[in-house]
Nucleic acid binder design. Structure first.
Length: 675
DNA sequence: GTTAGTTCTGTTTTT
DNA sequence: CAGAACTAAC
């Protein structure tokens, strides 16, 4: 319980932020300025001054951040679980409210949360019936627009796009259908979780007031990543007492492409009069040269709040820019450098990170690290619960839980193959629509539907019976893992996997995943206070990271986006080339270049002691070899902080190319190091 | 209804 | 080039 000692360690600005308890507070926290420490200490401090822990709410974007914060606060407070502040993601927080206030909502019990792939399936289904849609657009594109609409308006009702291009016409047409169908299926998508709570608060002001009285102090992390809807929710919740503290950095806003609105930072001061603004600019993470490089790059953004990071540490080594002949060599170079630094300095594998723009770039680095027997962990990428076979099984569980969930039923209807083809499924769906029945009910009476062959009808109704039978068992919330095993055996899922993946070792791997899935259900049952199938599926939907992911050691391989919030003594940012950073596709979006620059800034500021930026001369893209151009961001790094290292053997290089290469632009000495 | 062959596409990602 | 998505032939 060393809050006082913790506070004593803070700098003046940080202290001010911690102790400014009442009224709106905007903390502009630069990279590495001790942001997390401020929020956690502030939470602990509030509670220590006598504020009931349960009336403090801290909202984060990821479960990982929430877990970390929880851990730090508990160790600071040594508090028992029952009297702890609420630390949660926006989505989990809203889900809790929805579940509690169910009676005020149009939702039935056991509603399902749809993930992106289920949203797409639903939409594809709807598009079949819409005549103006002549397969002009991909479902994903339309869904993207629907998502943007949902996240910019603040009500599920109003949907004026007012534009008249083809896409808008289709979106206007399909959006209400999409929303209506979700409700019919007793399902919600991620955006709905927040929107429904807002709707609830608007319809039932007494409820809003009850929650306002409950959560008297609200804190928000990564505020620059909030979207319009999240901000609206915060405004509602904090509307009475205005004890809202947001922490963010506009320079680290890298999610505008999915609806984040960094403008929320600017609006904050207008919406909350008397806002106290505190800037945290002292950086505790990076050495001087790294910081200079970061400042040099971000300075080129026009749209930003002026701030400049500084450190009391020394300059440290220069930022190294290295060029490799191609992608393979780039990976070898990085692996070699890691081995070299491990032996020459007192570093461990955990101290290194390789950061890239897109997840595909991890491959050559994984290969090179493996060849050199360097342990590594890849962050992100396809999550374990996103694997096909897991989602298949999850769909079984979903239709067992929620009998209106046509989308899940559709997914597993013929999986494993049981002779229910698309023609029959189409007829069943048409019938369901006509008779206003759920698909599962329709399955139950398949024998009465025209055009369904007798033996198909039998298979269809058998499936419906099976699902109904399992429902009774699963809803008891007991021995669910055992029941899932029985289900897997009954549908002969393993046989299906073996025929689907013909190679033995691939199939075995998939079977391992399936076993792990059963295990995770078992684990859930054993650790949860009151386990339920719905609870398990919600965990799957809202917190779908395997725990092992977070504590594996070795060199970290991570995308620029996922690197936000992390720090490493030695960082390699790789593929620092034009059309990669900035990504060529990003330039299509307005503000795209500036967002890419912020991404570069995020990457640079992950480094504590040493930073390497690598690029190549040639890169194989989509199968063919093309010459690469160094990222324009490299030129924005002040000349005084960089060292250039060219690792090519001059014997192999083409001398004419040499003249026009990047060296001409660079006013610095070259230093050839061992590779 | 199923399977094999063909065409297309190619960021970032949490919930 | 590789994986996904779609189409056409059994």
């Amino acid at each position: 319980m060393d809050i006082d000692r913790e506070i004593a360690r803070l700098n003046l600005r940080q202290k001010e932020a911690v102790m400014y308890a009442d009224g709106p507070l905007l903390i502009l926290a630069g990279a590495g300025s001790g942001k997390t420490r401020v929020i956690t200490t502030r939470t602990a401090y509030l509670i220590r001054t006598g504020i009931r822990a349960g009336s403090v709410l801290a909202v984060t974007f990821t479960n990982k951040a929430a877990r970390e914060m929880k851990g730090r606060i508990t160790s600071l407070l040594k508090t028992e679980k029952r009297n702890a502040p609420i630390i949660s993601t926006f989505h989990s927080f809203c889900l809790r409210i929805l579940r509690k206030e169910m009676k005020y909502l149009g939702l039935r019990k056991n509603f399902t949360i749809y993930d992106t792939s289920e949203q797409v399936s639903l939409l594809k289904n709807l598009l079949r019936d819409i005549t103006v849609y002549r397969k002009q657009f991909k479902a994903e594109v339309i869904l993207d627009r629907i998502g943007k609409l949902k996240n910019s308006s603040t009500s599920l009702q109003d949907l004026n796009t007012s534009k008249q291009d083809d896409l808008s016409i289709i979106v206007d047409r399909v959006y209400p259908e999409y929303q209506k169908t979700l409700r019919a299926l007793n399902a919600v998508d991620f955006d709905d979780l927040l929107l429904l709570v807002i709707e609830l608060f608007r319809k039932e002001p007494h409820l809003l007031e009850a929650y306002q009285d409950r959560f008297r102090y609200i804190m928000v992390d990564e505020y620059q990543d909030t979207n319009r809807v999240q901000y609206t929710l915060l405004k509602l919740l904090a509307g009475k007492r205005k004890n809202l503290c947001v922490v963010g950095d506009d320079d680290q806003s890298v999610y505008a492409w999915r609806g984040a609105n960094p403008g929320n930072i600017l609006d904050f001061e207008n919406d909350f009069t008397g806002t106290k603004v505190i800037r945290l600019e002292q950086n505790y993470r990076s050495m001087g040269n790294i910081l200079e490089a970061a400042n040099g790059v971000i300075r080129n953004n026009r749209k930003r709040m002026e701030k400049s990071l500084w450190t009391s540490e020394g300059m440290g080594p220069g930022v190294k820019i290295m060029r490799a002949p191609d992608g393979e060599e780039e990976a070898k170079l990085v692996a070699g450098k890691i081995l070299h630094l491990i032996t020459s300095k007192d570093l461990s594998y955990d101290d290194f990170a390789i950061i890239y723009r897109a997840n595909i770039f991890s491959r050559p680095f994984e290969a090179a690290l493996r060849r050199n027997r360097i342990p590594y962990t890849v962050v992100g990428g396809t999550s374990y619960f996103d694997r096909k076979e897991i989602k298949d099984l999850a769909s079984y569980l979903k239709i067992i839980l929620n009998r209106y969930d046509d989308i899940s039923l559709l997914r597993i209807a013929n999986l494993p193959r049981r002779g229910i083809g698309n023609t029959s499924l189409g007829r069943l769906q048409d019938y369901a629509e006509q008779e206003k029945l759920s698909l599962l009910e329709t399955f139950g009476r398949a024998d009465k539907i025209h055009g369904i062959p007798v033996q198909t009808a039998k298979k269809v109704s058998d499936l419906a019976d099976m699902i109904d039978n399992y429902r009774a068992g699963f809803l008891k919330g007991k021995e669910m893992a055992m029941q899932l095993s029985r289900l897997i055996a009954e549908i002969d899922f393993i046989k299906h996997i073996r025929s689907f993946y013909k190679t033995e070792d691939v199939a075995l791997k998939r079977i391992d995943y399936i076993n792990a899935f059963v295990e995770s259900l078992k684990y859930y049952e054993e650790t949860e206070d009151s386990p339920s199938l719905q609870g398990f599926l919600e965990m799957l939907a809202l917190d779908n990271k395997p725990e092992s992911d977070e504590k594996k050691g070795g060199v970290t391989l991570v995308s620029l986006h996922s690197s936000k919030g992390l720090e490493f003594p030695v960082v390699f940012i790789v593929g620092v080339e034009d059309e990669i950073i900035p990504h060529r596709k990003s330039l299509l979006d307005k503000g795209g270049l500036e967002e890419e620059r912020r991404l570069m800034y995020v990457g640079i500021t992950r480094a504590m002691k040493e930073l390497f930026l690598t690029h190549t001369k040639y890169r194989v893209r989509y199968g063919s070899k093309t010459s690469s151009i160094p990222s324009p961001f490299l030129e924005e790094i002040p000349a005084g902080v960089v060292e250039y290292i060219d690792t090519e053997n001059s014997a192999e290089t083409d001398k004419t190319e040499e003249k026009i290469d990047i060296r001409a632009d660079y006013a610095r000495v070259m230093e050839i190091l061992d590779s």
